[in-house]
C-alpha cells in the first residue's frame, strides 16, 4: 500500500465549477479534471507571483511536491486549450483551511466563527491575536 498523500492546504476553493470552450463544433466529449490544489498552485505561482518555496510552505507541502502539482496543473490547462475540451474543478487531496488565529500571549491557536463578534483570544482574553496563513 502506498503512503497516504499529505493534504494540501487550499486557502479558498475556486469560485467556479469549470470552464467550457465556445465556438467549437464538437459537443462536450471530454473534459479534464483540475484539482483544487492544482488551481491553488496556479493561483499562488502565477497570480500571486510567489516563488515555489513560499507557495509550498503555504500549502503545507514540500517544494518538489508543489512543483509537481504546478506542472500537472499547467499540463491539464494546456490539454484543455489545445484539444478544446472542458475544465472541471474537483476536490482532490485538498484541505480547505479556514481562518485560524494565533494568540501572541499564550500561543493558543483558534478559529472565530461568524457567530462570535469579539476578536480576542478565547483563553486568556488577549487582544494581541494574529491571523495565520494570510
Amino acid at each position: 500500500m502506498s503512503r497516504p498523500k499529505t493534504l494540501r492546504k487550499v486557502v479558498a476553493p475556486p469560485n467556479f465549477k469549470g470552464y467550457k470552450p465556445y465556438g467549437t463544433h464538437a459537443g462536450t466529449r471530454d473534459s479534464v479534471e483540475l484539482l483544487y490544489e492544482e488551481y491553488e498552485a496556479i493561483k499562488l505561482a502565477d497570480y500571486d507571483l510567489m516563488n515555489h518555496l513560499e507557495a509550498s510552505k503555504l500549502m503545507g507541502i514540500s517544494r518538489p511536491t508543489f512543483a509537481r502539482i504546478y506542472e500537472t496543473a499547467r499540463r491539464k490547462i494546456a490539454k484543455a486549450f489545445v484539444e478544446a475540451i472542458e475544465i472541471k474543478t474537483v476536490y482532490g487531496d485538498a484541505l480547505l483551511d479556514k481562518h485560524w488565529y494565533v494568540c501572541d500571549d499564550c500561543q493558543t491557536r483558534f478559529t472565530i466563527p461568524k457567530t462570535i463578534e469579539e476578536h480576542q483570544c478565547p483563553l486568556c482574553k488577549s487582544e494581541q491575536i494574529e491571523l495565520l496563513n494570510t
Binding site: L96, K98, Q107, T108, R109, F110, T111, I112, P113, K114, T115, I116, P122, L123
Partner: peptide, 16 residues
C-alpha cells in the same frame, strides 16, 4: 472534524 465544527459555527481552540 474541522469542517463539521466550522459548519455549525463551533469555535475550535488548540492548546499545545
Amino acid at each position: 472534524a474541522k469542517d463539521l465544527l466550522d459548519k455549525f459555527n463551533v469555535q475550535m481552540v488548540i492548546i499545545q
